[in-house]
Design a protein around this nucleic acid. Sequence first.
DNA 1: ACAGCGTAACTATGAACATAGTTAGTTGAC
DNA 2: GTCAACTAACTATGTTCATAGTTACGCTGT
Lengths: 200, 200
Amino acid sequence: MERTGGEVSLRYALLALLTSQPLTGYDVFKQFEQSVGYVWHAPDSQIYPELRRMEKDGLLRGVEEAWGKKGKKKRYHITPEGVEAFRAWINTTLDYTRERDPVHLKAAYLEWAEPEAARTQMQAHIAYHSSRAQQWQEMIAALEDRSNPILATRLEAAPEADRAKIAGYKIFTYEGMIERANAEIHWARHGLELIDKLES
Amino acid sequence: MERTGGEVSLRYALLALLTSQPLTGYDVFKQFEQSVGYVWHAPDSQIYPELRRMEKDGLLRGVEEAWGKKGKKKRYHITPEGVEAFRAWINTTLDYTRERDPVHLKAAYLEWAEPEAARTQMQAHIAYHSSRAQQWQEMIAALEDRSNPILATRLEAAPEADRAKIAGYKIFTYEGMIERANAEIHWARHGLELIDKLES
DNA sequence: ACAGCGTAACTATGAACATAGTTAGTTGAC
DNA sequence: GTCAACTAACTATGTTCATAGTTACGCTGT
């Protein structure tokens, strides 16, 4: 069985973060949660071993630092090979395969549900996406006024000419997520009406 | 480590299919591809062992049938326990955890891409979701005029009073997927404009 | 008579993920 | 001075998923 070239997105999510600055595993995990993690969730138990694998593959270089009297921690620097790998990934068009959507799976068989459970599901869908949409709206605001600290660090390290692009694409990403959330909310509201109509 | 109760959606996707009629493994796989598979993709290599596990867990009962002179196949019937498990799942509100979206991950770092690669990605996104939207539109038409064979079988086995619900929720599901696809298309078009603006 | 295609069912392998821990140092409040 | 909360890094285990096979039957056309 062969390794299939172009997938493994956690790896690229981590590279994305490390293009900005060198970080320790714990730093990576913490920053991940507040940035890339919104589009690609991963627990620390997946991040630590992946960082080690990436070091082994030459994409990162780990520099050990003392921590306290006995402890030590490793700060990961992206290597030129790492930058190259990231660039190659970003220039490759993604293929669209897996479709895995529990909510729509459930929606398709809602005739099996208690009407109240069906309504609760739709309300939970609305609540979830509303809260996300709001969160992203705040994120966009913080990106626009440059008060987002992770963005600020990234911008500092980047040439002036690239700064509009860096911020612009991040805002664009969150805008897309808001659009999607709004579509979900609209759909679920329609679902509530449908439940009222069908379960009478 | 314990088995964590309420997840494992492939199992419920299979139960959903088998609430309508008993099917052999191969039938399941084929029908899956044309119905539930649109919201929950799974290869046959995952379906066969899962069916066996479900039989072991008492959710299905497999009845062996002769096939040719030597061959045999197994037709899976849903058991009352299976129906109960499905009903329990559908009445449980899903929890929203994993967020894993390679396109938005990539979008957030598009400043690293060649402008042409960025455009190609957005165009691929539009093409993919356009084709899906069209496919679902056709699916809705076939559900509305009852010409979809999988739906027809399901409706035959169901009491008259449930038929509007059964069809209605399936149409609702595909409507949601169209809405989402349209949001993606709209976003990607905005992306193309943004690329033109930023990469000049 | 056999080639080609579709049906049917299964196996093997590894990677990715989720869940749930453990160990140990650091900082600040009471 | 000790306890809680946080930082830091890691381990263990099982499940899910993807990829890529294999084996064998049955029907249709030449």
